[in-house]
Computed example of a mutant assay.
Amino acid sequence: MLTSVVPKLPFINKQETVNFYVNQLGFTLRSDYVDYLIMDKDGVELHFFSFPTIVPAKSDFMIYVRVDSDIESLFEKCRQGSSAVKIITRLESKPWGQKEFAIADPNGTCLTFGEAFS
């Protein structure tokens, strides 16, 4: 029986990755095993593994994170955050009933956030 999915994402620089997810997105660092990190926020868990040779511009890692409310505030926080937050797509309503925006983390991973609307 499947119970959940936990994305496992690469990191180049551990401290930059921790700073980005903790300071910009509000995650909590739960475990640091030198080359492996575990973070969570609001029931969403992310794992990270060391991959120092990855080229961010050529990274194909992507995840979709569902938001249950106030995606506008999350987008504004990212937009007004540090230069570490690279906006890929601005907040917009999609035909499939989601308000979405996408950012890239310091490792080139695309994070798309979506909130359902009717």
Rank of each mutant, 00 (worst) to 15 (best):
E72P: 03
R79S: 07
D70V: 07
P10N: 05
K8H: 14
P95C: 05
F11D: 09
T89Q: 03
L29Q: 05
T17L: 03
D40H: 12
G114I: 08
P7A: 14
A57N: 10
K14H: 02
L29W: 05
G97Q: 05
Q80H: 07
N23C: 04
K58H: 11
S4Y: 09
P56W: 01
K58Q: 14
Q80P: 02
V55K: 10
F101Q: 01
K94I: 12
V85N: 02
V5F: 06
T28Q: 11
G81F: 00
S50A: 13
Q24R: 08
D60W: 07
K94D: 10
P56G: 05
F11Y: 06
L37D: 00
S31A: 15
T17M: 06
K8Y: 12
F51K: 15
D105A: 01
F101S: 04
F117R: 14
S83R: 13
E92Y: 10
R90N: 11
Q24G: 04
A102D: 01
E92R: 12
A57G: 06
Y36V: 12
D105T: 14
E100A: 15
Q80M: 09
F11A: 13
K8P: 06
A57T: 15
S50I: 10
L111P: 02
I54Y: 07
G114A: 13
D40P: 05
T3G: 09
V44D: 05
G114W: 03
L91Y: 00
F27Y: 01
L2N: 12
S59L: 06
S73M: 08
L37R: 03
T89S: 05
K99C: 04
K41N: 15
L111S: 04
P10W: 00
F117T: 06
N107I: 11
S73N: 10
F11K: 12
R30L: 15
F48C: 04
I63Q: 03
D70A: 09
Y33G: 03
T53M: 07
T28F: 07
F20W: 05
G114V: 07
I71Q: 00
S82K: 12
L29R: 05
T28D: 08
Q80W: 04
A102M: 04
I87W: 00
L2T: 14
A57P: 03
F20N: 05
E45R: 12
N19Q: 09
K8V: 15
R79N: 11
D105G: 01
F61K: 14
V44F: 03
G114E: 09
A104P: 04
M62W: 09
E115H: 00
I71Y: 00
L74M: 15
G81Y: 01
E76G: 02
L111R: 10
I103V: 14
S59G: 11
P7V: 07
T109R: 09
A84H: 04
L2F: 11
V5Q: 06
P56F: 00
A102T: 15
S83D: 06
F20Y: 07
F51R: 15
M62L: 10
V22I: 11
T53Q: 10
I103E: 02
G114H: 02
L25E: 01
L111D: 00
C110A: 10
A104I: 08
Q24D: 04
A84K: 03
N13E: 04
T112P: 06
K8T: 14
A84N: 08
H47F: 09
D42R: 12
D70G: 04
T53D: 11
